[in-house]
């Protein structure tokens, strides 16, 4: 069974992000880039499906600049079989819809039975791409999945989707698109052997023209990227715990009117 996993390279959460000179994007200087954490759950799940079935291929795909190859290599080191890099200046300012269209096109070429995404990339936190890819492919999808079991005959998958107040368990025929929520699994580290073996695996560069995608104006544009407005300075309630607790409750009631 062929499985495609879509990943995105994002700044490490711990990295300090600074607004770039154009006030619309971030300054890339000094940023540590990582595979978006939810995408690691997606890669892990795909590898587990393959291992459990004892056959198949895991193809990891990303859209991004040259540096995004590092993310692909990380996934290859984890155990993915090969990688596809949608790498074209035409996608430099791609919004979710343009990314989804490109990913859908390459997935259509690959023809997998299962596609995994992370529930969202932790840079723009839009969380739309997995669903939009499903729409472009015309496939069913389930987001924020916490459990997954592919049927023995590979005709369908049973998933537990996280919803408010519980889980919904669905049977979905393949092919379909799933997005991984934390809790689905514990992603493995790449092993040293995996790292050493990754460079022998294929990373194929794909241009917009290879997918037959023409120029298509963005549907969303960034007006500005801004820092957070400062929060008013807080108040530390000192003194005996009992007095501090009393004063806090009074303040919450009378000043903040929060209770």
């Amino acid at each position: 069974m062929k499985i495609v996993v879509a990943v995105k390279q994002v700044p490490d959460t711990a990295t300090q992000v600074k607004i770039g000179a154009d006030s619309k994007g971030i300054d890339p200087a000094g940023i540590t880039w990582i595979v978006s954490p939810y995408d690691e759950f997606a890669v892990e799940e795909a590898l587990r499906v393959k291992e459990k079935r004892g056959d198949g291929e895991v193809v990891v795909v990303t859209l991004g600049p040259e540096r995004a190859k590092e993310a692909l290599r990380t996934c290859l080191a984890m155990g993915a079989d090969r990688a596809i890099h949608l790498n074209d200046p035409a996608w430099e300012a791609a919004d979710s819809l343009a990314v989804s269209r490109a990913l859908a096109a390459v997935i259509r070429q690959e023809g997998p039975q299962l596609v995994f995404f992370g529930r969202q990339a932790i840079d723009d936190d839009m969380g739309a791409v997995s669903t939009q890819v499903a729409e472009f492919l015309g496939w069913p999808c389930a987001s924020w999945i916490m459990e997954e079991t592919v049927a023995a005959d590979a005709s369908s998958v049973r998933v537990a989707r996280q919803v408010e107040g519980g889980l919904e368990i669905f049977d979905i025929p393949l092919p379909c698109v799933l997005s991984a929520q934390k809790g689905l699994n514990e992603p493995r580290y790449p092993t040293l052997k995996g790292i050493m073996g990754a460079k022998k695996k294929e990373i194929r560069d794909v241009k917009a023209a290879d997918l037959g995608l023409g120029a298509d104006g963005p549907r969303l544009s960034v007006v500005a990227l801004e820092g957070l407005p400062p929060r008013p300075p807080g108040r530390i309630l000192s003194g005996e715990p009992a007095a501090a607790a009393k004063e806090l409750v009074r303040s919450l009631r009378e000043d903040a009117k929060a209770i």
Binding site: P11, V17, G217, P218, R219, S221, V222, L225, E226, L228
Partner: peptide, 19 residues
């Protein structure tokens, strides 16, 4: 124009629609 938190809520992105 919509305002959305991005980068773990460390920044705010203001975006608008083409149509």
């Amino acid at each position: 124009i919509a305002t959305r938190p991005v980068y773990a809520g460390k920044l705010l992105s203001k975006i608008t629609w083409a149509k």
